[in-house]
């Protein structure tokens, strides 16, 4: 049985039609000991079949270990989003982008394809001027309507500056991580393992933390 119902498939096709450049999904999975990998595989296969501009390459997390390391993938299911030149932008999904998260996934794919919403120049300049290595983890639950906003914002930051990397982590797929980071409310945003934001935040809140990180250096 297909993951996307006909109506959803039709809408997804229409949305992906807006893509400008090609986008490539690099997907890491394995056959055993990964309860969500079956749905994730269906997701990656089905969504990439809906647009000629969206392709996918599947790797086995165990046998293709070196590739996983190259992309910094340390758990599965993982989807890495690359631009038309195959550049790793530091944008990842850990878990299936289901529920509300389908919206952040489509938004990110469109933005990576060059169909993004404009950011005011003054804010864009601030993003571009971040010089430190920034690692953003956004913990979500798929039933959370505020979460895609936090994921989109962090992915946009990663897209605009190569020093910034951002990943979505589904708390229900990775409960041990949710526990390790004390996630009891989503979205929960962890920046460089040290700073935390809970709830939906404007780009500005992310930038303020990045400024703090710069001052610490």
């Amino acid at each position: 049985m297909a993951l996307f119902e006909n109506e959803v498939r039709k809408q997804l096709t229409e949305i992906l039609n807006e893509m400008k450049d090609d986008v490539k999904l690099v997907y890491f999975t394995q056959q055993i000991e990964c309860p969500m990998c079956r749905e994730a595989s269906m997701f990656v296969n089905e969504i990439s079949s809906l647009s000629e501009k969206l392709s996918q390459k599947t790797y086995n997390f165990v046998t293709d270990k070196t590739v996983a390391e190259e992309y910094g993938v340390d758990k599965i299911p993982a989807i890495v989003i690359l631009d038309k030149d195959g550049t790793d932008l530091g944008i990842k999904y850990y878990g299936v982008p289901g529920g509300y998260e389908i919206n952040s996934f489509l938004g990110t794919v469109l933005e990576v394809s060059g169909h993004g919403e404009e950011i005011p120049d003054e804010i864009l300049n601030e993003i571009k001027s971040v010089k430190n290595k920034i690692d953003i983890k956004v913990f979500v639950s798929l039933a959370c309507p505020h979460c895609p906003g936090a994921v989109s914002t962090s992915h946009r930051l990663a897209l605009e500056n190569e020093n910034i990397r951002a990943e979505m982590i589904d708390s229900n797929t990775f409960p041990y991580l949710a526990q390790r980071y004390n996630v009891t409310g989503v979205p929960k945003i962890i920046i460089n393992e040290k700073y935390e934001l809970t709830g939906a935040h404007p780009i500005n809140s992310f930038l303020e933390i990045m400024k703090k990180i710069e001052q610490e250096q």
């Binding site: 639950s141 996630v183 009891t184 409310g185 989503v186 809970t198």
Partner: peptide, 17 residues
């Protein structure tokens, strides 16, 4: 403790409990 057990959005956070 907000986001560390104190929550305001039940639909979002109920599964974590």
């Amino acid at each position: 403790l907000t986001g560390r057990g104190v929550a305001f959005c039940t639909v979002c956070d109920a599964p974590l409990f």
